[in-house]
Nucleic acid binder design. Structure first.
Length: 572
DNA sequence: GCCGTTTTCGGCCCGACTGTTTTCAGTCG
């Protein structure tokens, strides 16, 4: 998959054009880049089918450039425009507070063409002497460089969400706060978060902003205005607070939830209808009369569309669907009836069978599957055939004692390099549920990995394919695998693809889920829990399923305990 | 460079905050 390579190329072209002060093309290239970046199919495949121009934001010229790059590994146009600006100059605009205009001025006046040059000039006090710059700018540039140096790995949803909800709770207790929401990418439950956005309505903005900027964990106040303020916490986490009049709360929430492309598109729809949409409401362009602002629903309604759930506001077809009244009815956060993937202290978990079962009952589940590792997973202390056989007996014995609750005995079985499952069929048949997973050989070629997984899926005992791409967010790239083939096979063989809810996995991810759904694949949402603590992440898995447009019927573990036999051949 | 329920040409989201200015440009989300 060269999707990321192509996307980065297009982004870089956009940056260069922006520095050259070219109008409109940067936006066009950036839009195309985002399309490629979030494409679930292989761009080469799309290209070979001659369907590049069907993708949003990609027209004749960008399509030609993509084809050239895919076929030759090079792009003449890029090489040419790159020559026109100094090497590394496009790096400059990665420094917060530095944009194309300032980069160009600094280059023209001070010959600055890299972040290193920029730092040197700022430290020597050369920048503050320039027209249009001052001491504060110089200081901000140095602080910006620090941030870039420290790296800006995005925060995992599983870390950002609890933190944001905690601060939301604190603000909610202020008498002055009328309505409050976590907004932005967090409200959309994106897998990683850049910064945390919080929206508040109040009659006394000053009080709320003061409280917010003086919270004990605040290290720096980045901005503090009448209606908008930003703070930085110790671990470089930025939180933006937007304060708004209660009467326009819905408009602000719509604006502040995004994403950017979704907002642009909704505003374009507004314009076509003779309206204007901003965070202050939907207005008639001519008379400036306010048409809607209190709730998101009334704004979307006035635009002639359904209100898309925040999780799918990504401009991936939800606007077109909402206009036709054809939005999916997404799986709800209370629809899950059980969890199929968990580990006990028999392998690399920390709790006993009994403790996990008790915790699952408390969550209101009807069933729960213990699925410890197989023998090949040495690091995870995987169980030998004999040990697994007795472990299964132990689970089944305990299951008999439980009333109104179905405890299932299974295993997360390694898919070996040759595509075999890590236990003989005889042992697999004794399990209620067999979950296949790749835990080794991540660097294999796409062909090897695809064949390995497809072969495993031919094993009649396999029920679920766990974390199908093996990625760890910010830590490990997914292995190379032809997902289209996996999706096709999964649909044919009734093998359920897992949506692993661990914050660092969230695997499958949103765009792949949506693509797999097109093949008719069904999914399970599992926590892959190794302790009682991580059972709570089920919500992140559900959020990810929602981002992949899943309805209740797409997710197997929304079924009742009685219905399990319909989905799993070894369960009666 | 892309795109079309005003358009195949002429548009291209909208507003806040900041620093450096004497009314605004640049950056950000």
């Amino acid at each position: 998959m060269k999707n990321l390579e192509v996307a980065n190329l297009l982004y870089e072209i956009a940056d260069i054009l922006e520095i050259q002060d070219v109008a409109f093309k940067p936006q066009a290239y950036r839009k195309a880049a985002r399309t490629v970046e979030t494409l679930s199919e292989d761009i080469e495949k799309v290209s070979k089918q001659g369907k590049l121009e069907e993708l949003p934001g990609i027209g004749e010229h960008i399509a030609k450039k993509i084809i050239e790059f895919l076929e030759t590994g090079k792009l003449k146009y890029y090489d040419e425009i790159k020559k026109q600006i100094p090497k590394h100059l496009s790096d400059l605009i990665s420094v917060p507070g530095m944009g194309p205009k300032r980069a160009k001025i600094l280059h023209d006046k001070l010959k600055i063409s890299s972040i290193a040059d920029l730092e040197k000039a700022a430290k020597q006090g050369k920048i503050s002497k320039l027209f249009g710059f001052g001491e504060k700018s110089e200081e901000d540039i140095l602080k910006g460089i620090e941030l870039v140096k420290r790296g800006q790995a995005r925060m995992l949803l599983g870390i950002a969400l609890p933190l944001a909800l905690e601060i939301e709770e604190r603000l909610k207790k202020l008498n002055e706060v009328l309505q409050i929401n976590v907004a932005g990418s967090l409200r959309r439950r994106q897998e990683t978060i850049g910064d945390i956005d919080i929206l508040v309505s109040t009659k006394k903005p000053g009080v709320v902003v003061d409280y917010f900027t003086k919270m004990p964990e605040v290290v720096r106040v980045l901005a503090k205005g009448e209606t908008k303020s930003s703070i930085l916490l110790k671990n470089n986490i930025q939180i933006d607070l937007r304060v708004i009049d209660d009467k326009v709360y819905g408009a602000a929430l719509q604006y502040f939830t995004g994403n950017k492309d979704h907002n642009i598109k909704t505003r374009e729809i507004a314009i076509k209808k003779g309206y204007k949409l901003s965070e202050y409401g939907l207005f008639d362009k001519k008379t400036n009369m306010l048409l809607a602002s209190k709730t998101e629903e009334e704004i979307y309604k006035k635009l002639g569309m359904q209100c898309p759930p925040p999780e799918i506001r990504e401009n991936r077809g939800e606007i077109e669907a909402a206009l036709k009244n054809k939005l999916p009815k997404l799986i709800g956060y209370n629809d899950i009836k059980g969890d199929f993937h968990s580990h006990t202290k028999a392998t690399d978990g920390t709790n006993s069978i009994e403790e996990l079962a008790e915790a699952a009952k408390k969550l209101g589940y009807e069933y729960f599957c213990i699925s410890d590792h197989s023998q090949n997973a040495r690091i995870a202390r995987g169980l030998s055939e004999e040990d697994m056989a007795s472990h299964l007996k132990e689970i089944k014995a305990y299951a008999k004692k439980l009333k109104n609750f179905r405890l299932l005995a299974g295993s997360e079985v390694d898919i070996l390099k040759n595509g075999d499952l890590d236990y003989p069929d005889k042992l697999l048949k004794q399990m209620d549920i067999v979950i296949g997973a790749v835990h080794s050989g991540f660097k294999s070629s796409m062909e090897e990995m695809t064949n390995r997984i497809l072969k495993a899926m031919d094993n009649e005992n396999l029920d679920i394919l766990a974390h199908p791409t093996g990625r760890l967010i910010n830590a490990r790239e997914p292995y190379e695998v032809d997902l289209q083939k996996v999706f096709k096979k999964a649909a044919e063989k009734n093998i359920y693809l897992e949506i692993d809810a661990l914050p660092q996995r969230l695997d499958l991810k949103d765009i792949h889920i949506k693509a797999a759904k097109e093949f008719g694949v069904k999914f399970v949402i599992d926590t892959d829990t190794h302790s009682l603590e991580t059972l709570k992440y089920m919500d992140l898995g559900i959020a990810t399923a929602r981002r992949g447009w899943c309805e209740k019927k797409d997710i197997v573990n929304t079924c009742s305990a009685k219905e399990l036999g319909k989905f799993f051949k070894k369960i009666r």
